[in-house]
């Protein structure tokens, strides 16, 4: 475990905590895309199939359980919680997830490292994670005023992806390795999707104004 990987995981964890904090304490999911959250739940469910077959470390297992538990509970909150569900921007959150899921599944069936159920599912989860933020970014663009917690949530998610790239560069030079093109390309694509958001996030921070994405 290197510092970039640990920082990446902690940033990812922080993003989930920020979102849970918003939902749980403010009892609001305004500006949060249910579509993105459902895609993340699917990402973790398909990626962590190995939680029952392979033991890597206590850290690894605990983190997997946290990401699985948090993603499914966030989806539950937005869909079913008596108060939270009323703040959901249903009419704005119109991205159709199957437009992302089907191409990712097809791509995973054709482009993978090994043709086994677990490996294809793992590859599917990488492709899907790369694009899962899109419904959230579209929703942010439609939202006039983005509240601080939602902005921080997306910022932390983007930072997590960026740190993972540094982690791979570090591992590439320090460990005996295979070149995992699929992971690298999916990861870089995912990080690039945040570039625009980052630009406006820093602009709003620098100018001390509320974050707003141009339509």
């Amino acid at each position: 475990m290197n510092i970039f990987r640990l920082a990446g995981d902690m940033t990812h964890l922080a993003s989930v905590l920020v979102l849970l904090l918003k939902i749980h304490t403010i009892k609001s999911c305004a500006g949060v895309s249910l579509k993105t959250q459902e895609l993340y739940a699917l990402v973790f469910a398909t990626r962590y199939l190995d939680i029952v077959t392979d033991f890597i470390s206590v850290y690894n297992t605990v983190m997997k359980l946290i990401f699985l538990g948090s993603s499914f509970s966030i989806v539950w909150y937005i869909r079913h919680h008596r108060v939270v569900r009323r703040s959901y921007d249903k009419d704005q959150d119109t991205f159709r997830h199957y437009l992302l899921m089907i191409p990712c599944m097809l791509l995973a069936l054709f482009v993978h490292e090994k043709f086994t159920f677990k490996e294809v599912m793992w590859t599917f989860s990488l492709y899907l994670e790369a694009v899962a933020i899109l419904p959230q970014l579209v929703l942010l663009q439609r939202t006039r005023n983005i509240d601080n917690l939602t902005g921080q949530y997306v910022f932390l998610l983007g930072a997590y992806r960026g740190l993972y790239i540094f982690n791979w560069i570090y591992r590439y030079f320090t460990e005996p390795h295979f070149v995992h093109w699929i992971t690298w390309i999916a990861g870089v694509v995912q990080t690039l999707l945040y570039a625009d958001f980052f630009y406006y996030y820093f602009e709003s921070w620098k100018n001390n104004v509320r974050l707003q994405l141009p339509a």
């Binding site: 890597i56 690894n60 983190m63 490292e113 591992r171 295979f178 995992h180």
Partner: peptide, 10 residues
Amino acid sequence: LEQPMMHDEL
């Protein structure tokens, strides 16, 4: 190596 390196990541 049975376990490819990326599989220990989250």
